[in-house]
Simulated assay, not measured.
Amino acid sequence: MVTTNTQVETVSTGADKAKLVAAAVLVAAGIVVFYLLAKQDLWVRVLALLAVLAAAVATFFTSEPGRQLIAFGRDSVRETKKVVWPARKEAMQMTGYVFAFVVVMALFLFLTDKTLEWVLYDLVLGWKR
């Protein structure tokens, strides 16, 4: 019997954890700043909030999870470019087939429902409406 010991190793340094904590603190600080500037104009409050949130996002993207997120996004875009999309004519035909199928199924379910209603209520139970 062959056993394979597959281990997934995630490297998380103290600096990365500190960056994530700093990003979370900056988000909380942005909310606090927004409410502390309650007497200021709304545009000043929003501008301050956006500035602090931008700092939080920048801090997050300098950490390893942030770099992994960026790499995932790049890989996703690369894979999306590999997809062979249908031509307009094919897409319209398939959309038409789907709509036709939905109409046929709606009619089938309606007729089945009304038939069962007629059989159960009128013939079996004898209820006349």
Rank of each mutant, 00 (worst) to 15 (best):
A15D: 10
G126Q: 06
V102K: 08
I70G: 13
K82V: 13
R67D: 12
G96N: 13
K89W: 07
A54Y: 04
V25A: 13
V104N: 00
W43K: 06
F108L: 11
R129S: 07
T59Y: 02
V124I: 14
A87M: 09
G73V: 12
M105Y: 01
N5T: 12
R78G: 11
T6C: 06
L53W: 09
V84F: 05
D113C: 06
D122C: 02
K39Y: 06
K19T: 04
D122Y: 05
L116G: 09
T112E: 05
F110A: 12
A55C: 14
L69T: 11
V57R: 11
F101S: 12
K39Q: 13
S63P: 05
W43V: 05
T13V: 12
M1H: 09
A24S: 15
D16P: 00
V2H: 09
P86A: 08
K89I: 10
G96Q: 07
V21L: 07
G14Y: 04
R129I: 05
K82F: 04
L109E: 06
N5I: 14
P86K: 11
V11K: 11
V57D: 10
N5K: 13
F34C: 03
V21F: 05
L36K: 15
K82Q: 15
V11S: 05
A29H: 04
K89G: 06
T3H: 06
F61M: 14
V83D: 03
V124L: 02
Q40A: 11
T95S: 08
V77T: 09
L20H: 00
T62N: 08
M94S: 10
R88Y: 05
V124K: 15
A91Q: 02
V98C: 03
F60L: 14
V25F: 06
V77R: 11
K39A: 14
K17N: 07
